[in-house]
């Protein structure tokens, strides 16, 4: 009944070797994305969401080791590919938009050059056709006077405009999967909405799959069909967006939702989650979230929970939250 997913990752781990030792930034996560599906990956800084996306893109440096039981894209085994074979997919079938538009474009080249470069490499376009396609792309991402913008340098455009250019580059070769890593975080609030709307519009028009990485639950609620909540390199909870927002099962998800300002109306203080994501040297025994979890028991402090089945998805918790929202994350 289920067709083969577009992106199929099983038990992915990414380790970084530093002077202080080996650090596992991503720890055995499973991730599937269907053709045309929008998946939101949510988590705090340091939860491993960006590293996961870089691993999917094959962009981790030589000090990051990627291990997985399975990593397939469109039925092809990404792990078995040579770097050259991988590059044929990267930027063409899988494309990425990054967090910092101002620094993600090369300051020494014009916007036009940077868009056309992708088209030249992957589609072999040249001359008039190449130029027209670039103009068309700028039009599609909502850049006014696209013809004159081709010769602009990134520093002559605003952050929002640059992010539109980045999106134009990403969608240039009609990718089947677009990975957007916090695409709106660095932008003004008014521009954030525009960029998000643009991404959603393009996703719908082109039927491409979208992985939207963010730490903003509100953004996920508006755009995604399915949510993966990550914590300390692991999947804490993964469920369809409606179910997750209606009744989170993992206490961490519950706490993240409670921290949304619109859910805290009438409260004197905005609830927060005390503490930080454990880093390289302070991984707790038992459940990784237990030091910050108000429901933690002795069992949670000793035993590490697996991903258990919950309604419509999975949650990594011995004691999943009940249906009724209980103000789970309120500060004690």
């Amino acid at each position: 009944m289920h067709t083969m997913p577009l992106l199929d990752i099983k038990n992915l781990s990414v380790e970084f070797t530093t002077r202080a030792g080996t650090f596992r930034a991503v720890d055995g996560i499973d991730l599937t994305v269907d053709e045309g599906e929008v998946v939101g990956i949510v988590g705090e800084s340091g939860s491993g969401k960006s590293v996961t996306s870089l691993a999917v893109m094959g962009l981790l440096g030589s000090n990051g080791t990627v291990v997985a039981d399975r990593m397939r894209f469109g039925g092809k085994d990404l792990l078995a590919m040579s770097p050259a074979q991988r590059r044929k997919i990267t930027g063409k079938d899988v494309a990425m938009v990054f967090q910092e538009p101002m620094s993600s474009l090369n300051p020494c080249f014009t916007v036009g050059f940077q868009i056309m470069e992708t088209l030249k490499v992957h589609e072999g376009l040249s001359g008039k056709a190449l130029r027209n396609r670039a103009i068309e792309l700028l039009e599609q991402v909502g850049i006014p006077a696209p013809e004159s913008r081709l010769s602009a340098f990134p520093h002559q455009l605003s952050g929002g405009m640059n992010q539109r250019v980045m999106i134009a580059i990403a969608i240039a070769c009609n990718p089947r999967l677009l990975v957007a890593d916090e695409p709106t975080t660095a932008l003004d609030v008014t521009i954030q909405k525009q960029i998000l709307d643009l991404l959603v519009r393009l996703q719908k028009e082109r039927g491409m799959a979208l992985i939207l990485i963010t730490h903003d639950m509100g953004v996920v609620a508006e755009t995604a069909q399915r949510v993966v909540v990550m914590y300390a390199g692991q999947v804490a909870e993964t469920r369809p967006v409606d179910a997750l927002f209606k009744a989170p099962r993992h206490p961490y998800t519950g706490a993240l939702l409670d921290a949304l300002p619109e859910r805290a109306l009438g409260k004197r203080r905005l609830p927060t989650i005390p503490g930080v994501v454990p880093g390289i040297g302070d991984r707790p025994q038992g459940c990784l979230f237990n030091p910050r979890c108000r429901f933690a028991t002795d069992r949670c402090r000793i035993e590490r929970p697996a991903l258990f089945d919950v309604d419509a998805g999975k949650a990594r918790c011995f004691y999943p939250l009940a249906d009724a929202p209980v103000g789970a994350g309120e500060v004690l």
Partner: peptide, 26 residues
């Protein structure tokens, strides 16, 4: 170490082009 080098790699450009053009020019 700049972001635009990561972008160049994300475009699927070959290492030679990333280093010889995008990095060297800067």
């Amino acid at each position: 170490g700049e972001d635009y080098i990561r972008t160049a790699k994300a475009k699927g450009l070959a290492g030679k082009r990333v280093i010889g053009l995008h990095a060297l020019r800067n």
